[in-house]
Design a protein around this nucleic acid. Structure first.
Length: 922
RNA sequence: GGGCGGUUAGCUCAGCUGGUUAGAGCGCCUGCCUUACAAGCAGGAGGUCGCAGGUUCGAGUCCUGCACUGCCCA
């Protein structure tokens, strides 16, 4: 049955078909390897998307890079596990469902906790898989059998276990501290969830009367409403302006409360008046000062950031309304001294944009320094490497300036904190399972904390909890530490840093199966507690204008739209080709269009191949090695001609470069290298050169045609395998078509990745081919200049200085005739350099036997430009060669190359000069 | 305020440890439907590598300063 490939390349149909096939056939499911396994292992944890997530360009870049690396490893024989899952995303998901309720006119609190959580589960069941379904469309080769959700029972149990252990080790504590409070969400959030924004605001100066004198102390604030909770005024002990006021009191305006004047570092003499108000319940620095001086903490706001009863007459007002009223009253009573413009930075909730209120509340914290120490050490010692390298320092800086992590959230959706409060003694009991009796007072009335854990708490544990922790499993011995993590810079601290902290802590003493560790190339690593050996931080995808994409700006590019228009393969290729490490990607549709053209090129090259196979040798399959398996390079390639030797050598160079590039995460290099090879060498030259050999007419060299056809198939097969990690769909489609259903594996994804073979490099063939290409291009140039009709074949004269080159050109004269529309080649014995309209390189001269006059002026222009270039080259070369320091210091190969180049330039100089003279150019 | 990037052709970007005459895609110009491909083929124009110094035999590449610009942290 002949190969059937539709004339037009239409990615849509092909891609959905294979995406479904890969999932249905469970091609990427990994069984736990038994004891004694000796193959290398590669493990990658998918950064779990939020269940509320929709695929965006960042995901697509991330997943494309992961899939490339994963497929590459799998094809190279690694046991390759790519582990997918989703994150319950506490705040984000709760918001979704709250909004849904809002549309029904209901409120979360009316529903009650239990009912609400049920609703969230329902929501999750309906919509939570959307993003994973989108991933399937991308071709992500993950193990769907191992898919997890962060609130699965086993993972939740592990979370409780971790919490209890950390508590028992004294690394989790509970206390009243100032936290970032989001009044909209009514919960505490971590420092990382606060985004700072520079705004033009006001600074108000307020004077407080000193008790028992007619003096005032003036302080400045950007949040005047907090003065209602002031419990002191601070001045610096060294500040002589205030020495006489030490130990005195001021009367807090509006509240008529006497508060002390204290001396504290908080007040800096050079800043403002040198005196500051102290509000321990509403500012983190004031809070610390308050502790130092045992000041009362007066909280003047409730969880909605409305003023509470401590705010006296202002109770019930929203914080901003209260600010207005406070200012008006201060002004009226003569306490407001000044109002100034002031540039300040305000913190907003990352999720909803509400201005965050520093608020005193009871929360759970992780004592971070002990965990950070080891996490720092793991990176400093090189046990974990971070690529690109500059992120390493960013990571270490952050670890050095880390604060305790507030892990409790006043939400309902998430892992509920395993702590129960005794109604009798008010103590908290932390336990793995719900206790029935208080161990302190014996009370039986216990209530679990209503708080849940920060989402990042559970995701930080994933590298080991997804492998069965706290049990010691074979999966852990094989797959932990995971090999690589590919992620965005944005979550370096949120997630990456925490995984390292938790991994180093909870997996301490863990050892990977030594045979597998060695086979995988990690025998030099000492620490197997780390969650991954390497971290690759990918770039940010921006819009075509280089702007960060945001919903507000409306410049978000939906990857599914792009896929729809250009195909997944082309989109993947674009992201790979533009992903130079360390630089952001301005996503360009025009480039995606270019890579769809590349896919189309491959498609048509395949049609060309099939056309010939069907004509010459129906049923032809790619050759295998002795053992029957496809070759790691090009199998049974028979070099009969120059172009055969050349393409085999070029293929091996491409293979070597691509493998090298992927090993160092240089995706753009890998992609571009394949592109250049396939289009610029394989299609543009090789296919054109072998066309005559594929002649299968009566009387033609039929065995030669068969050999050429076999070479074509074998080379094409190897090229598809080389390209497969980047463009999985089109390569699968064509590869399957080559085998006409009788595939050696279920998928090209399971075939061998090409490896370069030293003996297939052929420098001689590459040099000869380069000369031949130069000759053909020269003739094409001349034809264009002389405006020769495309259909007219023109005889040429060629002069070659060296007999071997003349022989080589003669041998390949058919190629020149076909590719440059030459009628006949005549070799001459003397240089053609002086001939009008001749071209040449240092190796040959060529001249067209064509009547039409050349445009002398244009030719002069061209020659002059060329002469300039040559002279520049000679000038700089001579300067260097005349420099003894250069000769003595530069490496021999550099000098040698320069000499060779200078000789060629000298030849070209003479030729060009005499031609200029001949033409009489001015 | 602290830290990290970027500035190369009209546009978007490569150029890894300093070493030929700085590359690609898109766009532009010219000519071609040459039976794999017009989503193509052949040819062409276009850059004093942000500015100023320095190191070096040699700098787009390393160092210093400046300008503009982006991001992160506080």
């Amino acid at each position: 049955m002949p190969h059937e490939l539709p004339k037009a390349y239409e990615p849509g149909a092909i891609e959905t078909r294979w995406a479904e096939y890969w999932v249905k056939e469970k091609l990427f499911s990994v069984k736990t390897p038994p004891e004694g396994e000796t193959r290398p292992v590669f493990t990658l944890l998918l950064p779990p998307p939020n269940v509320t997530g929709r695929l965006h360009m960042g995901h697509m870049l991330n997943q494309t890079q992961m899939d490339i690396i994963v497929r590459w490893h799998r094809m190279r024989g690694f046991i390759t596990l790519w582990l997918p899952g989703t994150d319950h995303a506490g705040i984000a998901t709760q918001m979704m469902v709250e909004k849904q309720l809002e549309r029904e006119g209901k409120k979360r609190r009316e529903l009650g906790r239990e009912k609400f959580v049920e609703r969230v589960w329902e929501w999750k069941k309906l919509y939570g898989n959307a993003i994973l379904d989108q991933m399937k469309r991308l071709g992500a080769s993950v193990d769907w059998d191992r898919e997890y959700f962060t609130m699965d029972e086993n993972l939740s149990r592990a979370v409780r276990e971790v919490f209890v252990r950390l508590y028992e080790e004294g690394l989790i504590y509970r206390g009243n501290y100032i936290v970032n409070w989001c009044p909209w969400h009514e919960t505490a959030i971590s420092d990382l969830e606060v985004k700072h924004e520079d705004v033009q605001g006001k600074l108000w100066e307020i004077r407080y009367p000193v008790v028992g004198s007619d003096e005032f102390i003036t302080v400045a604030t950007t949040r005047p409403e907090t003065m209602l909770g002031d419990t002191a005024i601070a001045v610096n002990a060294k500040d002589e302006r205030y020495t006489h006021l030490h130990g005195k009191k001021v009367l807090l305006p509006l509240m008529n409360r006497e508060i002390p004047i204290i001396t504290d570092e908080l007040a800096q003499p050079e800043f403002g008046t040198g005196a500051v108000k102290v509000t321990p319940a509403h500012d983190p620095n004031d809070f610390q000062a308050g502790l130092r001086h045992h000041l009362p903490q007066i909280n003047v706001m409730d969880e909605h950031a409305h003023m509470n009863q401590n705010a006296g007459p202002y109770a019930g007002l929203d914080r901003f309304e209260a600010r207005k009223r406070v200012l008006a009253d201060l002004r009226e009573q003569g306490y407001l001294v000044a109002e100034k413009d002031y540039a300040l930075s305000i913190g907003k909730c990352d999720r909803c944009g509400t201005i965050v209120e520093p608020r005193l509340s009871e929360q759970w914290f992780i004592k971070i320094k002990p965990l950070a120490e080891r996490a720092k050490e793991a990176v400093e010692s090189g046990e974990i490497t971070i690529v690109p390298d500059n992120y390493r320092q960013i990571y270490l800086n952050w670890m050095n300036n880390i604060y305790d992590w507030c892990i409790s959230r006043q939400l309902w959706w998430g892992h509920r904190i395993p702590a129960w409060k005794c109604d009798g003694c008010k103590e908290f009991i932390v336990a793995r399972e719900a206790p029935t009796q208080c161990p302190k007072c014996g009370g039986a009335k216990l209530e679990q904390s209503s708080d849940v854990l920060d989402t990042w708490f559970s995701s930080g544990l994933l590298p080991f909890t997804t492998l069965g922790w706290p049990e010691k499993t074979r999966d852990q011995a094989v797959f932990y530490p995971t090999t690589l993590l590919i992620t965005a810079y944005e979550i370096l601290f949120f997630w990456v840093a925490r995984m390292i902290m938790f991994g180093c802590h909870f997996m301490e003493g863990h050892e990977q199966d030594p045979a597998i560790k060695k086979a995988s190339g990690w025998q030099d690593k000492k620490n197997d507690s780390v969650p991954f050996r390497q971290v690759y931080i990918h770039s940010l995808v921006r819009d075509a204008a280089g702007e960060k994409m945001s919903k507000v700006k409306g410049n978000v590019i939906n990857p599914l739209d792009i896929i729809e228009r250009f195909g997944t393969d082309a989109t993947r290729f674009t992201l790979a080709a533009m992903a130079a490490p360390g630089t952001d990607i301005a996503f360009s549709e025009s480039r995606t269009g270019g890579y769809r053209a590349f896919a189309n090129k491959i498609w048509n090259a395949a049609r060309f191949m099939f056309m010939n196979v069907d004509r010459i040798e129906p049923g032809l399959r790619p050759a295998t090695t002795e053992g029957g398996s496809p070759h790691k390079g090009v199998a049974r390639f028979q070099s009969a001609t120059l172009e055969d030797r050349w393409i085999l050598s070029r293929f091996n160079r491409a293979v070597s470069d691509v493998n090298e590039a992927l090993a160092t995460y240089r995706f753009h290099e890998a992609a571009n290298r394949i592109y250049d090879f396939f289009w610029g060498e394989f299609c543009d030259w090789y296919l054109e050169l072998i066309k005559p050999r594929l002649n299968f007419e009566e009387g033609a060299d039929q065995s030669g045609a068969r050999a050429a056809c076999a070479n074509l198939v074998n080379l094409f097969d190897a090229s598809l395998r080389l390209l497969h990690p980047v463009m999985p769909f089109i390569t699968e489609e064509i590869w399957q078509a080559i085998y006409e259903g009788k595939v050696p594996y279920k998928s090209i994804a399971l075939a061998e990745y090409p490896q370069a073979s030293e003996e297939q490099f052929d420098l001689g063939a590459e040099t000869e081919m380069a000369i031949l290409q130069d000759l053909i291009v020269s003739v094409r140039n001349l034809r264009a200049e002389l405006k020769v009709e495309p259909k007219v074949k023109v005889p040429i004269e060629v002069f070659a200085h060296e007999p071997e080159i003349r022989k080589m050109i003669d041998h390949n004269r058919g190629a020149v005739e076909r590719l440059a529309s030459v009628e006949k080649i005549t070799f001459v014995d003397s240089s053609l350099a002086n001939r009008t309209g001749a071209r040449g390189t240092a190796r040959f001269d060529v001249h067209l036997l064509y009547e039409q006059k050349i445009d002398v002026a244009a030719e002069c222009d061209r020659l002059k430009k060329e002469l300039e270039k040559i002279e520049r080259g000679i000038g700089s070369g001579q300067r260097q060669l005349g420099n003894e320091q250069f000769l003595s210091k530069a490496p021999a190969t550099v000098v040698e190359n320069l000499r060779k180049q200078q000789q060629e330039l000298a030849v070209m100089l003479t030729k060009t000069q005499s031609k200029l003279k001949e033409l009489g150019c001015q």
